[in-house]
Design a protein around this nucleic acid. Sequence first.
DNA 1: TAAATACTGAACCATATGGTTCAGTATATT
DNA 2: AATATACTGAACCATATGGTTCAGTATTTA
Lengths: 118, 118
Amino acid sequence: MVQYISPPLDLSFAALSDPTRRGIIDQLGRGDASITRLADMFQMTLTGMKKHIQVLERAGLVVTQKVGRVRTCKLGKRGLKAEAEWIEAHRKLFEARFDALDEIISEMKQEGSDESGS
Amino acid sequence: MVQYISPPLDLSFAALSDPTRRGIIDQLGRGDASITRLADMFQMTLTGMKKHIQVLERAGLVVTQKVGRVRTCKLGKRGLKAEAEWIEAHRKLFEARFDALDEIISEMKQEGSDESGS
DNA sequence: TAAATACTGAACCATATGGTTCAGTATATT
DNA sequence: AATATACTGAACCATATGGTTCAGTATTTA
């Protein structure tokens, strides 16, 4: 049986699957921000934004630090190296598939068969 | 020219957030496979595997074709270009943040403050 | 024609997600 | 001291996810 374990990628890809969270990363790339400021920018309750930040923190994409009553968020040191590596390694597989001869053959066979399923 | 509408990053990052689905992509990189074969490899029911394939299909990462009673799965033409581009563009933001001077300053300030929250 | 194979669909389950409100606590500010 | 600000936590809600079983349908194969 083929098993693939890589919890960090689970968490970071899941974190990146939400447009608000990608927006937060975008924003933090332009400068650190408090949770309140981010909540205002994304028109969301403080509590809602806090949850997004927690997801990003668990994924290691964002780190926070509370000073006084303000929690400041910034991009995490971890970066997106592991994600970039996975994607790049697998892009090659995608490309390799389409250089293969059987690709052309299977394209030819497609006529008359159920291409898209139910 | 054929145009491929790249489904939003939401779908592909969500698809990639599951280790089984990353494994399926890995496997399809080594050759096309039926749903039954994948279900066997990943020790899962046919129905369970079918759902994973549907998620990958909606994200455009896998295409399937049914011939006779067998549905064959292969890597989609779309590839991982959009995802790679997003990641690469944002890696730069992460790196830029850590070149900044305020990074060093904030690291120094961290002593004695609530680093990790609740 | 009968039986095996490969998939499909519906229903169910436990847990997670993305959001909210409401009620706190801790920290400034006046 | 009183008020305002910034966050925290619990509870709730609707929907999605990752899996299952069970009951089909369609297509080989014997």
